[in-house]
Design a protein around this nucleic acid. Structure first.
Lengths: 211, 211
DNA sequence: GGTCGATCTCTACAAACGTAGAATTCTACG
DNA sequence: CGTAGAATTCTACGTTTGTAGAGATCGACC
């Protein structure tokens, strides 16, 4: 995405070259943390600026309105989304374990953790951005997963599995419920994988087979 | 709890009898809805008052500060808490189904639904009230459940089961993920009960048996 | 060296917030 | 009827919020 060295030979405007001091990234990191800790309404321009050590107006100068700043905050997990879809490829025998490892792994990465926390927190606050994001995830993640699951209620299976994973991740990383929070990562995967697999490919109880 | 007709014969003070117009209850209902929809910080005195059709100052007059109003909002599920603990009594063979039916049933009741939504929403917002409430639920619900589960990591089992249930309830009633949201209640219980039971009394994978 | 433009700060404003107390209306009892 | 007190509204204060623009600082290119 960055422009090369010799691009527009003639009409290159002079001036200070951007991206030098790194404050732009510092602001974004502070915004991620504040949004993750306090939610959309709880985070403030002034708080973010204070944490980044700059003037509040600079935040607005770089990222515009609060919605735009929040959108920039969530840009990172867009890249992590590919890691998830990659886990869906392959056979369905061990899909539960691959799904669990890929999704929960995103929460273990200190880089993506604040963004995911902010995402979950605002997904439960019916702001205008939350609806868009929810629909996006529903189509992008659940749709992708359901398409690999055969004909027996794939959508329901995908939702049950995803719900379970999200709930576990939130309990572990957002709420911090013990002993889930200090559990070893591989132990957690081993615990959840069997039941996930049962939702994805196991038999559904006869009572729920009507629709 | 209501006083009888002829109680204190002599020293009964005069004045307008309380509880006539029902605005007090209307305010509380509006507060529940606003807290459920917008979270603690998102809900405002003015918005609650507007929905109840009264002056904002009246809200404060009846319920005091915002924290106290929020506490009054959550007073109702305290009664519903007994219904949950009641489900824990009895054998452990069908504990998963009883737990699922009792907990998810609370979410089906339009009376307790807003309070539960508000509770979940603020449980994810690290305000001062959230911490207290979280600890209370951890000790009161999870502790109670874990005490019926034997010696093999009862706390971990209880957390896994509760996490699963809460996640499903949130997906169904707060986020509204289809097809979970329009699923029949009994179908939902039938779907979740087997895996809940497996967490509560089934074998844990050997990888997670160390601690 | 001069200058353009990006980076960054200062000051400010209108709106909304929680909170507070005085003032008014109205009902029920003596 | 008179009055006490609950129910309800009015007005207001101080703070914080998002947003906005003017101005200062400084590095890179002509």
């Amino acid at each position: 995405m960055t422009t090369g060295d010799a691009e527009g030979a003639d009409r290159r405007p002079g001036g200070r070259r951007p991206g030098r001091s790194g404050t732009k990234e510092a602001i974004l990191a502070a915004a991620r943390e504040q949004f993750a800790d306090k939610g959309y309404t709880g985070a403030t321009f002034r708080g973010i600026a204070a944490q980044a050590g700059v003037d509040p107006a600079l935040v607005r100068h770089f990222y515009g309105t609060k919605d735009q700043l929040f959108a920039a905050t969530l840009a990172l997990p867009g890249e992590a989304l590919g890691r998830l879809q990659q886990a869906f490829e392959g056979g369905t025998e061990e899909l539960g374990e691959r799904f669990a490892r890929a999704y929960l792994g995103l929460w273990e990465d200190p880089e993506t953790l604040p963004a995911l926390k902010a995402l979950v927190r605002t997904a439960l606050t019916t702001d205008q951005t939350a609806d868009l994001m929810r629909d996006f995830l529903q189509e992008r993640i659940l749709g992708e997963l359901a398409s690999r699951l055969g004909d027996d209620q794939p959508r329901l299976r995908a939702v049950l599995a995803a719900t379970h994973l999200v709930g576990a991740a939130v309990a572990r990383h957002v709420i911090g419920v013990e002993p889930l929070a200090s559990l070893d990562f591989e132990d957690l995967v081993s615990l959840l994988a069997p039941n996930l697999q049962s939702y994805l490919t196991g038999d559904l109880p006869e009572h729920a087979r009507l629709s």
